[in-house]
């Protein structure tokens, strides 16, 4: 069993769910999270289309909020970008298929498309029936 943790754009959630549905693995947990990556959060141009691209592509964290506020117009930057986190527990053999389909749906080619992590899971129990491991996730 593997756990697939996908952190994706908020507006791609319905399409991702549909794609997973079509493959027959529709059970998942969704969480609202805030995240940031190598760019340290803010992506002005993507958040506000009227923003000139040269204004700030990367906004670094400043140690004091006041210094930060003076340097940037606060409503137009974000230290964290809101994302959706999906968690699926699936059998080993379908992991690559699911990862491929999530990547295909979410790929826009711009920064902030998200990350997918695959990690091992040792056991699972279906609470209603008490079924263990393989049967619990089928």
């Amino acid at each position: 069993m593997k756990e697939i943790t996908a952190i994706i754009r908020r507006d791609k959630l319905p399409e991702t769910k549909k794609a997973l549905d079509e493959l027959g693995y529709s059970s998942l947990t969704i969480q609202s999270v805030d995240g940031r990556g190598k760019q340290k959060g803010a992506m002005c141009a993507e958040m506000d289309s009227e923003m000139p691209g040269s204004f700030c592509t990367t906004v670094k964290l400043k140690p004091t909020p006041s210094a930060y506020a003076l340097e940037h117009t606060l409503p137009k930057v974000a230290l964290y970008v809101p994302k959706r986190m999906l968690t699926l527990i699936v059998p080993d053999d379908v992991v690559s298929k699911l990862v491929k389909s999530i990547v295909k749906v979410n790929q826009s080619g711009k920064r902030g498309d998200g990350k997918i992590f695959v990690s091992p899971v040792e056991g699972a129990v279906r609470v209603r029936t008490g079924e263990m491991d393989g049967e619990a996730i089928s």
């Binding site: 593997k2 994706i8 990862v99 979410n106 080619g109 711009k110 902030g112 997918i116």
Partner: peptide
């Protein structure tokens, strides 16, 4: 701390 087998960047796949 827990193990991760693989990590994918969605933008590049």
């Amino acid at each position: 701390v827990s193990p991760v087998d693989a990590a994918y960047t969605v933008r590049t796949g």
